[in-house]
Design a protein around this nucleic acid. Sequence first.
DNA 1: GCAAGGTC
Length: 762
Amino acid sequence: MHLIIAEKNIAAKRIASILAPKKPKQSRVNGVDTYQFKNKEETVVIGLSGHIVTVDFPPQYKNWQKVESRELIDAEIVTVATHSKIVSVLKKMAKKATNVTIATDYDREGELIGVEALNILKKANPDLKFDRVRYSAITPKEINDAFSNPVSIDFNLAAAGHSRQVIDLVWGASLTRYLSLVSGRLGNMFLSVGRVQSPTLAIIVDREKERDEFVPKPYWEIDALLEDKNKNEVLASHSKGRFWDKDEADTVMEKVNKARKAVVSQIRKSSKTDKPPTPFNTTELISAASSIGFTASNAMRIAESLYTNGYISYPRTDNTVYPASLDLRAQIEIFSSGIFKEYANELLKKKELIPTRGKKESTDHPPIYPASYAKKSELNEQEWKLYELVVRRFFATFAEPARWETMRIKFEINEEEFKSSGARLVNAGWRWYYPYNAPEDRLLPQMEEKDILSVEKIDMVDKETKPPGRYGQGRLIRLMEELGLGTKATRHETISKLYSRTYVHGSPLIPTKTAYAVIETLEKYAPTITKPDMTSKLEQDMDKIAEGEITENDVIDESREMLQSIFSEFEKCQDKIAESLRAGLREDKIVGSCPECNSKLSIRRSRRGSRFIGCSNYPDCTFSLPLPKSGQIIVTDKSCDEHGLYHLRIISKGRRPWNLGCPQCNFLEWQKSQNNENQEKNEKVTSKNAHKKTVPASKKKSDKVTEISGIGKVTAEKLDEAGIVKIGDLLNADATEISRKTNISVKKIKNWQKIAVPDRQN
DNA sequence: GCAAGGTC
């Protein structure tokens, strides 16, 4: 029997249907889909689920406290199964197979994933013969060509990938454990470190520091409100723009203050065009989605579900150039009736469809395009919004440039020059198809040179320079791509990780003091891990391994040595590191000043483990406020107008973050509601011992599906049988799949998924 | 309870 291994189920299915003379037979083995057919020989195609094994340390290294973090550097590395079902199917199939063809994706990780599967197969059947096929699109031509010319497996390329796994694990685990142990942040509060996440966090912290250090510089602008004879208003500004010297501005102001008329001294008309956008790859999609309100992870989660339901093409791609194999006209024709018909038919009038091309051209997958027509009623609101974005972007890549007419006018007001500029969209071009973030027309009335306008008002406005802005998720994802940090499939996960580790909060991203402390410590003692250079160096080394110039062991040994010397530094300065980390952590706990004694109020833990806000002047001052029992507490940078305390945000896994606001306002409100409820008892709760009482903040909600309205006991049992217990399970599952297993309608399931959508970031 | 990379 000939066994074919693909990277994922959908690829296995498509490959089978191309190679098989008639429809392949689909059967489930141990919960894994396989596709069988007979060509020259009996053939079985199986899809993996990406990596089915991972690297880890042996179990004796499990305990953080009992093992020195440094020991992880040279610890043995073992391979453990992460998808045991698939692994056992492979073992079973290996015994029946005589030869295997590895048909995983055509890239480094694909080669490694193939070798991982091969190692499992060879162990079960050492006599198995093997080869490899490489293709860059699952089309009949590519697949048939590839399978008629099988090549050999590139073990060097797989070794390159494996070296990355080992280095990431060793650096990540040892540094994560060291920082967590030395700062006493254990359990789910640990401080993580990694080759991708730490440089990303450093970028955010660096920007925040620039903002902290920024000294605003005052400047002045002089604006004039003019009116033409038809009472059209025109706003003009002094041609100098920013006056850095107030005296100079005052002098000009004196000159023009009393002026009654402005003379049009020059009119320049011209036009400009802006080019249609390039096809979507993952980064561009996330970035565009981010600008219309999606977080990076939400955008990817929704894109994934649109993809699995066949509405859009594969969402994880670097490519921004449509491949020749894609029939673009046919993809547009899908929309020639239905809600987008006027757009599609306009494009279809063109004799030739010439799409734009982005800078990145790769063979992994095509750019993201709409794969089939979706009715609005089939999707929930968020899905539709993203689907529409993909459809409109696809259309826009075939459209003409947008053309603007621009006008620049100079005015003379008592010998001082003022100017104004206008722009009008005369030909919408691609912007008709893709109306997102369109700049507005700035219209100016018709004017001729020498025309005289009346001066209605002249203002001197004092302004100041602003610090550079914080990064939003879209911008950060682009920046990561530019710096080579992470991959198309992982960048959004890295950002989510920074939120869940409470290194950042808010949108755009604001780093916590904990993040400052971690990055400052790493920059001082382990700068390598805070810079994108570590990734570029690793990439170069991996290329050399793939070329056979050096071995995997050479690279890993060198990396281990570097890490050893970092730990030597750590050990010399352990006390200093501990202190500076703890100082940063303490700062994140400060909520404001005590209303009774003006000392610092901070988040504390009682002896029994519950959290509350207490005064640093305890026991002299016993002021306290209650806090919720569960969830991570983030002290934001916004403060209460009335009490001066920082607003709090509570983050719990799988749930929307809760903006608790000012802890004192929150407590007072609760007190009020309690008083209303128990007026007879008139239970008096003083703020002094408030934290001992139960507060609404501590009401613990479960994460079971029964929390969703409309899911009762019976339904929950049905879902349980389909493996859905928690809300998270429901969100991660495919609605049609659950529907098949439970006989609950897809619509109902989708609706539950809709109302239970968590948004971890905001 | 650690990383980053696949995929669901």
